[in-house]
Structures are given as structure tokens and as C-alpha cells.
Design a protein around this nucleic acid. Structure first.
Lengths: 146, 146
DNA sequence: GGTTCAAGTTGTACTATACAACTAGAACGC
DNA sequence: GCGTTCTAGTTGTATAGTACAACTTGAACC
């Protein structure tokens, strides 16, 4: 096995380890906001609001799943739905103030955790690692290995 | 924000994207072997057998979770339990032949998917990316961001 | 104006998970 | 040596996240 192949093996193994750990620890870090909820809120913030269907498409989730997630986030007051006046089937989702606050807070604490984890990395390596990850994730739609 | 900080932001964002996708697609890639089952079987192969408690500790899972996973894997004939003659509380878990076959098969197909994904990367970048991931995952036990 | 399409909800089922209570067996203290 | 305490594992119960299928409601298009 040449070194490119063995690097691919390592990438596979380490990505798998990461995915498993992320799954296991996601709920423990921020009991008030699961990884899924967090990514949904982030998306709403980035997009300044969007439809449930857009969330489902973007995250490759079933619309029923999104519907329930959205219902839960509305129940806890983190988002609100506004009927699209153009099309009454559509609910445009927006962060509430409470939602923005919690999102900010969780973002900060996640950021702090990543910073701590990466504290002793030289800047050059951080920049390169970041670029590799972007390239990896950009490398496809949503099939393939994770 | 300096470039180290913005690299950390990127790493955080991309790792989060990866973790979410992994979760969403894990079950779809290999319906016959979930990501968790796959990692448990891999561990058994690497270790040439181990105890349920070791799996729980290694993967930061509750022992009840492991107990049920193990029961399922035994039911489908992929692993077997052997009572430790030294200590009758202990069940040493081993892959069966069927387990080894399926593990090999899934490993190959995961490997192929990663290879395809990384096909157009220069070897130098693969090697560096692999090293960064190892370093990242080695960076702690099982707290912190995913 | 009926047919077809799109957005979302609800019923149902399944998997992965944790925590707590329990059983069975081992080890230690005196 | 026998009670206390520790360890390995199972089972009961609850929860989150997910999918698929059936349905409702509204829009669009002949």
C-alpha cells in the first residue's frame, strides 16, 4: 500500500472516530440544544429565515422530521413561523430573540471548546487543516462517506 | 479576527457539517451494519476480542447500550460470547466468521467511497490531512467538541 | 373547475441512547 | 470464612431523532 492509500485509510478511520464521538457527545455538551437543533438555528440565522422544506433539502432530512424539530423549537420559543402572504402553504421560519441569544451562547461555548482543543496548534497548521476540511466537505452533495 | 481564529471557526463549522452528515447518512450507506455496529465489530477485530465493558469505555457508551448492541450482533450471528473461565462475570466477545465477512465487505465499500471522494487529491495533501485528523482526534479523551 | 403538484402535519414504528434498579459473581478485610 | 463492597452485565423505562405513509390544505395549470 503506497502512502496515498494509507493516508486515505487514516482519513477514513479518523473521520469515523470523529463522527462517532460527535454523535455520542453532542447531547452532553449543550443539553438545551442538540446538534441538529443547533445546525437548524444556525441555518436560519445565516439565511435570515427560510422554509421547512429548505431545511429538509439542505440537511437531507425527511420533511416530517423537520416538521417535528421545528415544532419543538417553536414550543421552546426559539423560532417563530410567519405565514408567507404570497402562498399560504408556506411558513417562513425566523429566529426569535431568545433563539438568537441561545444560538450565540452555544456558538460561543462550542467555539471555546474548539479553541481549547486547538490551542497548541501552530497557525500554519490550523489554516491548512481548515482548508482541507472545507475541501473535503465541498467534495460532494450528500452521498458518499458521511 | 486573525487568521488562526478564523481557521478555528472554519474547522468548527466544517467538523459540525461533517458530523451532521455522518449521522444522517450512516444508516443509508450500509443498512446491514450501522456506524456503531461497524465500529464495534472493527474494535473486536483489532483487539482480537474484548469485553463489553471495554467497548463501553472505549466508545464512551453506557454499558446498557453496549449490552443491547452486543445482543443484537449476537442475534444476527456476527459475534459470539465466550465465558471467561477465570471470571464468570466476564463474556469475551469475538467475531464469528459471518461477522468477519460482513466487516470485510463493509470496510471495502467504505474504503471505496472514501477513495472516490479523495481521488483527485495530491498525495502530499492526503498525507497532511490524515496527520491533522489524527492529531485532532488524539487531542483529548472524550470531552470537548465532538 | 377538476386534476395535479407542493408544503406541512400526524400516525406509527424503529434505533440508539441514558439512567436506574437489579442479579451474579469476585475480591477484600478482618 | 463470611459479610461488605466492587465489577460485569441485563432489564425496565424513558427520550430523541429518524423514516415512511397517509392525510390536509392551498396553489397552479390546463
Amino acid at each position: 500500500m503506497n502512502s496515498a492509500e494509507s493516508a486515505v485509510e487514516t482519513i477514513q478511520r479518523e473521520m469515523t472516530i470523529f463522527a462517532r464521538r460527535a454523535r455520542a457527545s453532542a447531547g452532553r455538551m449543550h443539553p438545551e440544544l442538540s446538534l441538529v437543533s443547533y445546525t437548524l438555528l444556525s441555518h436560519l440565522e445565516e439565511q435570515s429565515g427560510c422554509r421547512a422544506t429548505d431545511l429538509a433539502a439542505h440537511y437531507a432530512l425527511d420533511k416530517s422530521t423537520v416538521s417535528r424539530q421545528v415544532a419543538a423549537l417553536e414550543r421552546t420559543g426559539l423560532i417563530e413561523r410567519r405565514l408567507d402572504p404570497e402562498d399560504h402553504r408556506v411558513q417562513v421560519l425566523h429566529l426569535t430573540e431568545a433563539g438568537e441569544e441561545i444560538l450565540t451562547q452555544v456558538t460561543h461555548s462550542r467555539r471555546a471548546a474548539f479553541h481549547e482543543r486547538l490551542a497548541d496548534w501552530p497557525e500554519e497548521d490550523l489554516v491548512r487543516f481548515a482548508a482541507y476540511l472545507e475541501r473535503y466537505n465541498a467534495g460532494r452533495g450528500d452521498s458518499g462517506p458521511a
